[in-house]
Design a protein around this nucleic acid. Structure first.
Lengths: 213, 213
DNA sequence: TGTACATCAGTGAACGCGCGTTCACTGATGTAC
DNA sequence: TGTACATCAGTGAACGCGCGTTCACTGATGTAC
């Protein structure tokens, strides 16, 4: 897939068009899913002709990529903000749990409110280009968390800590995906249990494996 | 998507063709991924003309569905077998961990050896029809585990236990997906940590939330 | 402030392509007598 | 065991469609003097 850069919008009019295309793409994704998603339909929905779209995006993957980057940027912002507020290990387990749950709820909310968010998240597993975007975001978030965890668990090996943080980020994505698939009450309790699982896990993270006494 | 049943193979020759089509589909998926997957390419690869395929499968989704069902049946078989061998709560944490890890490794292996397994697993998140197949399999597995968990945790509420088991199954799928994406060593340690997380979680599963003393 | 010109933004119409799918057919296999 | 016939299995060739994409263009916006 060729991702060569296209014209960037410079006038107000074109910036509006650029955003209109992305909005239409998100809404369309919401409605018909990733399988039937096409540039022609996006144009139609945005009230534009195809050449207008191709002026800014080389193909439909570029569109999805931009949406993906924006969604994960919003995620990253939430993660970063909540980590700033409560650095790892500075509060007890009960408070940690509440914080973890709140953070997860906020991540779910951000995705739910993002046009096409649920489908973008799903597509990130199956569309090669989006897989890359996702991988980068996971890595970035994991690296940040790892930094905090190193101080908190100086005795745990780097390999284990790194797997643990990666897992935490993946689990967070998983939680959002499940939450968006389910009815409110189930979504709530799944979010809750994932928070428990995560806090529990880090609470008992020791240099040795559990039970290996 | 119309999934009307097509002719079922009755002669040996046609059963061979039927399987050849599925094998070609799996291999093709392995090579080019879900995005470029098409019936024409499957036919070409299987050395057949399109009408031969359409004799048995109404469309490409039927093909994917059959592959999906088979992969998850293999998964279910592994889960069921390992659960039979070691009913929940009958061994200590150290042994539980070893078992959990072995089970996860076997699930990873089964998927790795299944033609197109990695892509089928990914597509199950993004292709509507496969999402249904996945959902049914998750539900089935979760129900089975729930049965065992009810005995082990008679005091934990049904809602919590049900979320917990669902989560366990989802986590297991996640583990396989991550493992198939990564190099051997990273895959190993992620699999390990997911097993730890799971065992840890059930070890400390109590009627109240952690820290709520 | 007004006008001429350059650049930016979007249009209308069409293209080639591979997709899923179907038709009327030929050839292979199984079965009845 | 041999033959005639019915059914099953797969072919060759083509279809309409929507896809991504491009062309030469008109109209809108900004800028220099």
């Amino acid at each position: 897939v060729d991702m060569a850069t296209k014209t960037q919008p410079v006038q107000d009019r074109s910036r509006t068009t650029y955003e209109a295309i992305l909005t239409a793409a998100g809404e369309l994704l919401e409605e018909i899913g990733i399988e039937r998603f096409s540039t022609n339909l996006v144009c139609q929905r945005a009230g534009l002709t195809p050449p207008a779209l191709y002026r800014y995006f080389p193909n439909k993957y570029a569109l999805l990529k931009e949406l993906g980057i924006r969604l994960l940027a919003a995620h990253g912002e939430v993660m970063f903000r909540t980590m700033q507020k409560t650095p790892a290990g500075t509060v007890g387990p009960a408070r940690s749990l509440i914080r973890a749950r709140q953070r997860q709820q906020e991540l779910n909310r951000v995705t739910r409110e993002f046009p096409g968010g649920a489908w973008i998240l799903r597509a990130m597993r199956a569309v090669p280009l989006l897989r890359d975007v996702r991988r980068d975001a996971v890595e970035l978030a994991a690296d940040r968390i790892l930094l905090a965890m190193r101080e908190r668990f100086p005795l745990v090996s780097e390999a284990r800590l790194s797997a643990a943080t990666r897992l935490a980020v993946e689990l967070s994505f998983l939680a959002t995906e499940i939450a968006l698939d389910e009815a409110e009450d189930v979504a709530e309790s799944i979010t809750q249990e994932i928070a428990v699982m995560m806090v529990q896990y880090f609470m008992h993270l020791t240099p040795e494996l559990p039970g290996a006494v």
